[in-house]
Design a binder for these strands. Structure first.
Lengths: 354, 354
DNA sequence: GCGGCGTACTGTATCGATCCAGAAGGGTTC
DNA sequence: GAACCCTTCTGGATCGATACAGTACGCCGC
């Protein structure tokens, strides 16, 4: 049997509490006794207080949980998500806190709920989860502090927000397209339709989208387009099941292989936008001349491929989220952080072809 | 006060055990009673059994710990590490297990040890840690299963290995350089000298390096060079404090700004090799013609920049590590997995200039 | 009518620590 | 030398659950 505090205590004839103090409160006992205790512990192969038991008694887990888009492994394929994670990890590291990534299998909601309920953490960060996901309800039920990047009507008072103004970010991008004279436009994004398939989303309104980030970004485009007289029903929306390059290319095919093709394509993420660029090149079309393309996020690859996009501070978003979670400000007003975004115009947007 | 099992039990006059069974073993009580219990729990705001207490009693944490190079946030800047993490996350997800990233501050060893001792996990994965790091001793003391990518003399019997044959991987790369006629060669890597500074490492032998991965990779180069008559003392070694592009460029400067400069530079990672390429370009030198450069890892950027490198399967390494940790094979022989590597010759190596 | 059996639920022990009120002992103060 | 303090250590209560042996009871067979 593995040794416990009691084992060590018995070995040298002191009380359990004293051994505990030897580890956790060295000022509570003489240096001499402490040395003897640690020596005895080493001899017995006792590695120090059991973290689980300690967590139970201290009511502190020493870790924060991270709830991520769909599949956990997927998070590591998106450079933007990696940037966010880096920031979050920085904050956790600073506070000497672990970072628990939760397995959220997309097919199995019950497993996701179980993951939330079994997580030994002091709080949660939520990032890019569809609004309807049952894990979010489970999370609210646990009553732990939550920092989210998406507002949700049912958010409790313990919930904080760190994010950007998604709608005004895409409004700027939309105005850019309108100013260039584009009138036949399309938008590609994930969670636009319920079914996880590549194809037209047939959205009567952005409000129908059940995923905060996509919904808000669509709203921004909608208002920019409307201001230039381009009404929503004339805008083609295409859904992608995953936020990845291949899906972006496949979705673009739906738009490019029909006439008349749109003169501008707005993707709700850079990864998807890069896929659109692939599709253009495959058809001998030049981005920015034949078809304009806008992304979102400004990941490193976007600069490398000269993609016009909306910049948002990925790692800072993660870092601020972590800080807010680990050290919540007393004033509720400080629990909402809106970070700045900016339109980065590069080579993939240009005047609409006449 | 937050409700507990007892609160719910008292509310409807059953025992604590029965409420526990309602959640964990539904077959142990009538469906009717179970419904009443869950209803009462919902009314009281009880979100289900406390994960910490459950972990203590069940002797299972439901998470695996990850010990990473130096700083946690740093891990997310290296595409190879991200690939490894993706694989590990995949395995964890499959097993419905969380992934706890531990904060290993590089300046503060005591904090790192504390992080290991306080981690509520069922096992650990170790990746890219210097051999001497005290956290590794703390880890061994905890007696939990460990899967490591580096062999260490003090590894316990519970320890498994998933990795590559580092030395033979670099031997292949070294032979490639020798076959191209290079005789004045240099190696850049991290942990080559004790001090975390950019500069010559002054290594009398690879055996002096206290970091498994770098040591083995150097050994491979040493043997390839020696076979071609290039003795170790004539090889220049340069240390980089961090595994990043800028450090690689700065280290290359030490080699390129003196005469005679080496005709080939081997970097122990792609990230550093890409920095070397930057330094070459900054001096108007052409990689593969004026100076040959070899990397290690074969990250996506390596292909994009046509870097000759050694491919190793990043995410598979992570995935196999996770699988081995979560489902340890009975036969100790199966606890060692050596994955294949392969030299990928691209444009940054060429015949030695005469 | 009684043993045997299965189902539904109870109650105590236990997981491995920390908290905290209090006791023992030595030294200081007046 | 009584009162007081400080340091050092103790022991019972507690954190919130699960394990497991045991009880109560209905039902079946004979």
């Amino acid at each position: 049997m593995r040794p416990t505090l009691q084992t060590v205590a018995d070995a040298i004839g002191v009380s359990r509490s004293t051994v505990s103090n030897a580890y956790s409160r060295p000022d509570q006992l003489s240096a001499d006794l402490r040395d003897r205790i640690l020596a005895a512990a080493a001899a017995l192969g006792y590695a120090g207080p059991d973290p689980t038991a300690r967590s139970l008694r201290k009511r502190r887990a020493g870790a924060i949980g991270m709830l991520f888009t769909a599949s956990l492994s997927f998070a590591f394929t998106d450079p933007y998500a990696v940037g966010y994670l880096r920031g979050l990890a920085e904050a956790a590291e600073q506070a000497r806190t672990g970072l628990l990534l939760l397995p959220l299998s997309i097919e199995d909601d019950a497993a996701a709920v179980a993951a939330v309920n079994e997580a030994v953490v002091d709080g949660f960060c939520v990032y890019c989860m569809p609004d309807w996901h049952p894990a979010l309800d489970a999370l609210a039920a646990r009553g732990l502090p939550v920092v989210s990047g998406q507002r949700r009507s049912s958010d409790g008072p313990a919930s904080a927000f760190v994010g950007i103004d998604e709608a005004s970010a895409t409004r700027a991008a939309g105005e850019h397209l309108m100013a260039l004279g584009h009138r036949r436009v399309a938008v590609i994004g994930d969670y636009l339709s319920v079914a996880p398939t590549i194809g037209p989303a047939l959205l009567s309104s952005p409000a129908d989208v059940a995923y905060y980030t996509s919904r808000e970004r669509l709203r921004g485009y909608q208002s920019a387009f409307a201001a230039a007289g381009v009404e929503w029903p004339t805008v083609t929306t295409v859904n992608v099941p995953g936020n990845c390059r291949d899906d972006g290319a496949a979705a673009a095919a739906h738009l490019l292989d029909r006439a008349p093709r749109p003169t501008a394509i707005a993707a709700l993420s850079d990864i998807v936008a890069l896929g659109v660029l692939d599709a253009l090149r495959a058809r001998g079309l030049q981005p920015g001349r034949d078809v304009s393309v806008v992304g979102f996020d400004d990941i490193p690859e976007a600069a490398a491929e000269n993609l016009t996009t909306v910049h948002q501070p990925a790692s800072e978003r993660g870092r601020r989220s972590g800080e807010l979670l680990l050290d919540p400000p007393a004033d509720p007003a400080d629990r909402t952080v809106v970070l700045p975004t900016r339109l980065v115009v590069r080579a993939t947007t240009g005047p609409a072809p006449s």
